[in-house]
Design a protein around this nucleic acid. Sequence first.
DNA 1: CTGAAAGCGCTAACAT
DNA 2: ATGTTAGCGCTTTCAG
Lengths: 350, 350
Amino acid sequence: MATPTLATVAKLAGVSTATVSRALQRPDKVQPETRRRIMEAVAATGFVPNSQARNLRSRASRTVILLVRDISNPFYLEIYKGVEEAAVEAGYSVLMGDARDDDQRIQHYVDTVRARHADGLILMIGRFPEALKAEIPRLPPIVIALETFPDIALPTVRIDNIAASREAVNHLIGLGHRRIAHITGPMPERLALDRLAGYRAALAEHGIGEDEALVLNGDFSLAAGRRAVRRLFETDTAFTAIFAASDQMAVGAISELRARGHHVPADISVVGFDDIVLADAFEPPLTTVHQPRFAIGRQAMAQMIAMLSNKAPATTPDILMETRLIIRGSTGPRHGVARRSRLRGHVSSA
Amino acid sequence: MATPTLATVAKLAGVSTATVSRALQRPDKVQPETRRRIMEAVAATGFVPNSQARNLRSRASRTVILLVRDISNPFYLEIYKGVEEAAVEAGYSVLMGDARDDDQRIQHYVDTVRARHADGLILMIGRFPEALKAEIPRLPPIVIALETFPDIALPTVRIDNIAASREAVNHLIGLGHRRIAHITGPMPERLALDRLAGYRAALAEHGIGEDEALVLNGDFSLAAGRRAVRRLFETDTAFTAIFAASDQMAVGAISELRARGHHVPADISVVGFDDIVLADAFEPPLTTVHQPRFAIGRQAMAQMIAMLSNKAPATTPDILMETRLIIRGSTGPRHGVARRSRLRGHVSSA
DNA sequence: CTGAAAGCGCTAACAT
DNA sequence: ATGTTAGCGCTTTCAG
């Protein structure tokens, strides 16, 4: 049996296709009795409107693409849920795409929107491809979430990474730590730069001199956390605490510390960033910066809906969401000189 | 500036729209010189074919929906990647949807396919909604991954849950454990039933009697793992090992055991299922059943492509993927009577 | 090898 | 309140 179309339903209900269309779109514009007959026919035929045709005609797909840096990072899932909830309420669908930090893939998703497969793009990627900058005038509606691109004026929903990092590092300083290492995000990116800036601000505030050996490049991954700790030992750098720019790196760092016989937080304190789901089940439970992921997702979609409804405000919105430092078991007071030298001993014997 | 269409390009290149379409679809059917002019015009206008119109005409969307039980379970992300890779190779796109164990949402996604938004559906959900069973004759192409529905003949890609669970429990028995608890998946589901069956088979094989107090209902979540351990203590049930039907539950269980002062694996051994990303960074590193997630995703998409190309084999394929027990730090030999009674003491004092 | 013309299924004007 | 008509942008016969 062929797929039923508007015409199938129209014939069965004894009305024109236009009336069926109206009964489905604006039920109040059609007589109750007619509507009833039409609905009956719809049910009888199992009719589902062909969205391709509908969208072709109405020049909108009511779909939005959420493009993330790396889909295998569970961090984005909670954001997706926020986006999806706001979307469904407004009658939109959400499609999640994986950018994998690859310009080609990003371009592909932009083209998907240009091909009218989706109406807009919510970007959570670290880089804005050069090739796209040239196309800005003819780009589809875009909202940036979590990230920021300084020279590009697009609606943005983000957190204050500098302030959040400062608070995290201040927590460590408050516990007596002075030799605090920082594992950064992928490096020339705003996100990573801001968290580093927050780290530096906290140190400066307390008159603690910087030591470049304490700053390790990372990329948010578990492996990067392990690598950073290894490097600290290889370079004989003394430290009593670590501030990692992501929970995954914090977990990697703790795992490597443990492998080398150091205890967290007894010997070394560790702070993460993100508050991933497993953060409080981890041993030790992670002290970390909580981001309101769900709310960020909702806000981003709200901005997108505003753009798509042409309710665009005069100025480009830049919405700041609140973060919160959650203190759990992975941080503790710095230990006395004895322990410090014990650590030093380990280091030099490495 | 309006979005360029075929006509825009055609005019610029001085040819008909049909020729432009051909140049894009089957370049060999058009003269090299003409083709070159057309490509130039495409580049100049920034033309991207409108997929709605194309699909409306060609009656295919080249998109597949991957519908998962719960999108916030990172377990599915690796599968998504496998699906996506196979899809991209064949010129398909993938859309990931969140079923949340809700019949309405599932129906919505089926309708999305019926609305020609997608060509097929890869299902990784625990229940096949009753309402859908009636519609089976007019359902779109569907592939089932990970799960199975006994009375429904659809192409399936899965693992042997019974054998995998048996192997996991045998490992515990080999370490000397006899009082082994099992935390199940969501309960009347095939997946949960099979893992329970494997658990029972291993016990039977070694003449170990069953104790219903050792079987706890779960739902794959971290919280369920915690709850199960609490219940074991509340009911005064002696045990020296736990086999959890998911890593998340294993992590929850370990976290609760620790909170009650028990050490893993010194006092209690724990085995999980899935081998999630954090399994080996966890403390202790999790002994667990590894599933070839990426390969499962690829296979599922391969089946889907076969269905969509009408290369459907005579019989409904049921593809079994290999699992592997990975032994890490969360399991160890059962301790002597002394420790056992120490545990008992804890229990009775609870 | 290329062009003219029809039409995929729907919605938006316009007419009644 | 409902029907008629004309396309949305593309692919696909069918001619030439």
